[in-house]
């Protein structure tokens, strides 16, 4: 009963935040509502028994996406201030609202009429012993559906390449993003010194714990990326040059090793196998390098393309 009350309240808050993010007049307000929305959704995942997803949502949805949006907004509004076209409730918006309502109702109907669930809980549990990870979600991510995860780690790189493509030609090779300046010894700089050790610890813990309990490469990698982002925003470090070989090696090392493992399976007449005997440490090793690549890639996604002209 009380649980339902909690769920109902949370759903209403989620809808309110999403509604404000969609309908809100000012773009900044919409972005703030979206950040809030991410926090609430992370809580919702806990109620759905999905702690791993909650971790990912807390780190990515509420954290990184918000930073990306705020940074983008600051850079766009600096350039444009022209009033944007009105989207008052004319006939098209009314039709859109109606169509959205119909589609949402159809989806809700489809959801309500779903047949008896036939999830894979049991099958995952049966094979968990051979999977090399006690956490079923990690077992699915790295082993049972490892090919998805491998491709996904490459999707991140594709996005980064896309972003780098947007650099101006003169700036190519230079440091990613603008150079952040802060007052030395100021609040931000102090904060940038205190946070990283803790964040580093938490990030590594999440990866390490991920094979037994909720956590894993993506969650840990996001935390590590966030730490790096804070350090750079606090002006304590500079973002690396996009032409830097070490940076590029760090970006690809995770996918490369994962791919190499996939090819090694050919010896056994298969593709992407973790032999049960070695699965435990292999998964941990793959996760470790993946975390490094994911952390570096995510941070570079936030920094953006190089902006300052490269000094010869």
């Amino acid at each position: 009963m009380i649980a339902s009350l909690f769920d109902l309240t949370l759903c209403l808050l989620i809808l309110a935040a999403a509604g404000a993010a969609v309908f809100g007049r000012a773009a900044f307000m919409a972005v703030v509502f979206f950040i809030v929305y991410g926090i609430l959704i992370a809580i919702a995942w806990l109620r759905l028994g999905a702690i791993d997803v909650a971790l990912a949502e807390a780190a990515i949805g509420a954290g990184l996406t918000g930073v990306l949006l705020l940074a983008a907004l600051a850079r766009i509004t600096r350039r444009i201030d022209a009033p944007e076209p009105s989207t008052g409730p004319d006939r098209t918006t009314l039709a859109t609202a109606l169509a959205s309502l119909v589609i949402a109702s159809a989806i809700a109907f489809a959801f309500l009429t779903l047949p008896e669930p036939q999830g894979l809980q049991e099958r995952v549990a049966e094979n968990l012993a051979d999977a090399g990870a006690e956490n079923p979600v990690t077992a699915v991510l790295l082993n049972f559906r490892g090919w998805d995860t491998l491709l996904e780690s490459i999707v991140l790189l594709a996005a980064l390449l896309g972003i780098w493509t947007l650099a101006r030609d003169e700036a190519w090779g230079g440091r990613a993003g603008p150079r952040h300046v802060t007052r030395p010894g100021g609040v931000l700089a102090q904060f940038g010194r205190v946070l990283p050790p803790i964040g580093l610890l938490v990030g590594i813990y999440l990866v390490w714990a991920g094979s037994k309990q909720p956590g894993g490469a993506f969650q840990g990698g996001t935390v590590l990326a966030a730490v790096w982002i804070v350090t750079i925003m606090a002006g304590l470090m500079q973002a690396p040059r996009v032409a830097d070989r070490a940076l590029r090696a760090a970006l690809v090392i995770g996918p490369v090793i994962f791919l190499a493992l996939a090819v090694a399976g050919v010896v056994a007449g298969a593709f992407l196998v973790f032999p049960p005997v070695h699965a435990g440490w292999l998964i941990l090793a793959v996760e470790a390098v993946l975390t490094l690549s994911i952390a570096v890639t995510l941070a570079m996604l936030v920094f953006g393309p190089p902006e300052e002209e490269e000094k010869p």
């Binding site: 809100g24 007049r25 000012a26 773009a27 900044f28 307000m29 919409a30 907004l73 509004t77 009033p83 944007e84 076209p85 009105s86 989207t87 008052g88 409730p89």
Partner: peptide, 11 residues
Amino acid sequence: DETGDGETRRT
């Protein structure tokens, strides 16, 4: 907060 788009300004 007027960074917004003024999308509903005219309504």
